[in-house]
């Protein structure tokens, strides 16, 4: 106690002149000041914490949106009733009846529909437009995307339908075999420029085309392949050529 008093007197000699009561008051005042300072410091810290959290959320949200935006294909996405410039069309694109197929080259059902659709194309020629769009079912078909891209790469050299036909006709071969090697072989068979074909196969433009088709399919609620839209309306897959034929004739009659 004595020692304490002694120290205090040394530290603050001015206090010697103060009465005991005044000294007590001074000490209390000092304590309150440090408390106020501390509380102010804590307030700033809390404000900083909230600001930091808000910034982190805004930054993360903005970053996510930016990243997703970057992954959106540049091409427009076509609805099931319209034909866009990027579409692969057989027949006349001025035709009043439009048949859109969402297909996957690796799907067996698409391969069995392929001759049916091909015969329809020949039957109706310029009366209808047939559009093929990619809907690769990547979960079950590991080679669906690469073959879709191969058809688009062939399209850049004007041979989409030739590659489309070849892929369906030889589905078993490339599903079982080495598809990279076989695709090059098919390109050679179709007299495509091999180097250009390989370059296009992995180009962003071709990737975007396949992706734009797939997104369009998703928007049209396609969930299996093949899915057909006749003049924008989804149809149950016909069980025979005759049934398919009748559907198109009915659509033509409706338009005329």
């Amino acid at each position: 106690m004595v020692k304490y008093k002694h120290m205090e007197q040394n530290a603050q000699p001015a206090q010697q002149d103060l009465t005991k009561k005044e000294r007590k008051q001074l000490r209390r005042q000092q304590k309150e000041e440090t408390r106020a300072q501390e509380s102010k410091k804590r307030k700033v810290q809390r404000l900083g914490m909230w600001l930091l959290a808000a910034l982190a959320f805004a930054g993360a949200g903005g970053g996510v949106v930016w990243l997703v935006q970057k992954s959106v294909p540049d091409l427009p996405v076509a609805g099931p009733a319209e034909i866009l410039a990027q579409d692969q069309v057989k027949g006349s694109d001025q035709a009043r009846v439009v048949l859109v197929e969402y297909g996957d080259f690796q799907c067996p059902a698409c391969a069995s529909f392929y001759p049916v659709v091909k015969t329809l194309t020949e039957e109706f020629r310029d009366e209808i437009a047939i559009v093929y769009r990619h809907f690769p079912l990547t979960s079950v078909h590991a080679k669906a995307v690469i073959t879709a891209r191969a058809a688009e790469a062939a399209a850049l050299q004007g041979k989409f339908w030739e590659m489309h036909d070849l892929l369906f006709e030889r589905q078993r071969e490339w599903v079982q075999g080495d598809e990279q090697e076989l695709l090059v072989q098919y390109a050679r068979e179709l007299e495509l420029e091999e180097e250009l074909f390989l370059e296009d196969l992995n180009s962003p433009a071709v990737r975007d085309k396949v992706e734009a088709d797939r997104v369009g399919g998703l928007q049209a609620r396609v969930n299996s392949t093949p899915t057909f839209f006749l003049n924008g309306e989804r149809i149950q897959n016909p069980r025979s050529y005759a049934e398919f034929y009748d559907l198109i004739v009915a659509a033509l009659e409706q338009e005329n």
């Binding site: 982190a56 996510v64 992954s71 797939r214």
Partner: peptide
């Protein structure tokens, strides 16, 4: 925070109509 990133990603792909990248489980579409 991680949950927010995940949900924000799905929200962004929904409104921007971007591919989701269902690489692990492809049925996510």
């Amino acid at each position: 925070f991680l949950g927010f990133l995940d949900a924000a990603y799905l929200t962004a792909t929904h409104y921007l109509q971007a591919p989701v990248g269902c690489s692990l489980i492809a049925e996510c579409d």
